[in-house]
Write a protein that binds this DNA or RNA. Structure first.
Lengths: 244, 244
DNA sequence: AGCATATTCAAGTAATATATTAAATAGTTG
DNA sequence: CAACTATTTAATATATTACTTGAATATGCT
């Protein structure tokens, strides 16, 4: 009964599913959720051959999940719709809740992270409004420029060590990166702790922040030199807020 | 850098994606979003051989999207997590917005539906609170029992014609079914219109209602005989509300 | 024009997925 | 226990997918 119609509708849904049926393609989508990228840039970041990356992108384009724009020699790919990130996010959520293998993997590699008391998005928003915290975007500059948490300062993880002296020691820092399983923010927090600064990471990454509808900004700007010392108690970090 | 970890994480995500890479498996998931079902029941509804249905269910179980429970001769399958319906919903949303083929298909088969002015979930909730409308669940009784919109009356589409006389002519009706592309509610509205009753369909279906957090109920109950005639103007349907 | 670079395309192969058929298992009924 | 039903498993043919390699295309630069 209506079999033909149903088959055709579900065939369309499965086009999306098929595009998500490969680990490298999901990784491509999550990278594109940070910023546009060229084929070569995606291939080298993920460790794919150029031809292979190009083929995956073709698959994704045929499923209408990405779009491309030609710019001279380069072809820039981008997500076709904010809903594409939702796809990744829901897959991740289900994997977290349901896949024992996934949980084990996370436990092995991020088990110690709970000691670092990641900050929730809502809490960060409140503290940012109170100008209570310095938000550090530790992703590559290109991704910061494509979109970042409003008020954040670009401090790519590779430059952080060299630029530490720009960061007053009496402020509190929250670092964020690409997502909950990206280690950039962990490394940043580690570096900041080593230099006796108070720092935590945002639990999520920028795409989750944007998807939640929290304030974002675009473009370069906000050099670290703008960070002022704490106006509250010069020389000593303010009391840590209680978090449960 | 951290390639090995990333590969393993994305491999897990892709397990979910692979499970969604087949039209019949997506259809199985959407059916299970209505109610638990046995293998045989799924196979016959979808038009699959038993062995084939069993294999698809095995795939879904290995991706931890469904669980099974043995009951005598039968094995009942159910969604493993509410997030699994979210997967279907997000895929559908992306298909609707991005796939031209899908849009064309919908236009061809449901193009005339906009004439019927489907009711939005929010509007239905408001009107239900005001006891302004009779909500008819036109899915099979089994699905109604597994969960339905709070206050709805079970009126399976196959019985509707025979039970029409139980429905006062001076009330307004909203019929709903499995989802936006299920035709049961369309047929119900058509039958009700033919018998000069005022009726519209809910745009979405029960799983969307539940996922939105609107009030639901379980179990049999609520026979049609409980429907009272309108207390406002006996004999004539009340004025239609303006909808834009 | 000639060369370099970025990307796509085409062909081939290995691996994986799908559906069919037949056989095996497990539980129920008489 | 035999007959029956629901489900799973196994075996197989076919189709699809993933990655590699090498060639083709397209653009920009000198």
């Amino acid at each position: 009964m209506q079999r033909d119609l149903k088959d055709r509708l579900y065939e369309q849904f499965a086009r999306i599913g098929k595009a998500l049926a490969n680990p490298h393609r999901i990784e491509i989508l999550e990278l594109l959720a940070q910023s546009d990228r060229t084929v070569e840039s995606l291939a080298s970041e993920i460790g794919l051959s150029l031809a292979n990356a190009s083929q995956h992108l073709k698959t994704l384009r045929q499923a209408a999940l990405v779009e491309s724009r030609k710019d001279g020699l380069h072809v820039h790919y981008r997500l076709a719709d904010p809903g594409v990130f939702d796809l990744c996010a829901v897959i991740r959520a289900v994997a977290e809740r349901r896949l024992a293998d996934f949980e084990r993997l996370v436990q092995q590699h991020f088990g110690e992270r709970s000691d670092l008391q990641p900050v929730a998005m809502r809490d960060l928003l409140d503290r940012a409004k109170a100008d209570d915290v310095v938000i550090l975007d530790v992703r590559p500059a290109r991704e910061f420029e494509a979109g970042h948490i409003a008020g954040a300062i670009s401090m790519p993880i590779d430059d952080l060590q060299a630029r530490l002296r720009l960061l007053p020691t009496d402020r509190e820092y929250v670092a964020y990166c690409r997502g909950p399983y990206c280690v950039y923010a962990d490394r940043a927090v580690e570096l900041l702790h080593r230099s006796r600064r108070h720092a935590r990471r945002l639990f999520e990454g920028f795409p989750e922040w944007r998807a939640a509808g929290f304030p974002v900004a675009r473009g370069p700007e906000a050099s670290a030199s703008k960070i002022t010392r704490s106006s509250r108690r010069a020389g000593s970090p303010r009391q840590r807020r209680a978090r449960t």
